[in-house]
């Protein structure tokens, strides 16, 4: 898992498979980073992700709750069609923007 902190913004480069197993690690590490670096914005980068289940959705919802309490925002980038479908179905698109990259 890779993370990047730029000022108060944390980018999480999500793994290939965002399931319960990987979600646990992201939850722990990202919460630690959010606390230590006074993070207000979290970007979930789906560029490498080809699989996501409800555990992945749980991680996003959990980070949203935390960041929302701090007055910040979360968003997603580079989501493929499948990932977009999962995000829309689960309703997290109501709390989070999905940005497309301009090419």
């Amino acid at each position: 898992m890779k993370y990047q902190v730029q000022e108060n913004c944390l980018t999480i480069f999500l793994p290939k498979e965002l399931d319960h197993h990987n979600a646990e690690e992201i939850r722990k590490e990202s919460d630690h980073l959010i606390e230590r670096n006074h993070i207000r914005y979290v970007i979930f980068d789906f560029a490498d992700t080809i699989f996501c289940d409800s555990s992945g959705i749980g991680v996003i919802m959990g980070r949203y709750k935390r960041i929302y309490m701090l007055g910040g925002e979360v968003c997603a980038v580079h989501a493929n069609e499948r990932m977009k479908k999962m995000l829309v179905m689960s309703g997290v698109t109501k709390i989070m923007q999905i940005y497309e990259e301009e090419k």
Binding site: R27, S54, S55, G58, M61, M89, S90
Partner: peptide
């Protein structure tokens, strides 16, 4: 508390 989304069965159904 464990960040469970509660969407498991909904996804299976869908």
């Amino acid at each position: 508390d464990l960040d469970r989304s509660g969407m498991g069965f909904s996804f299976m159904e869908a």
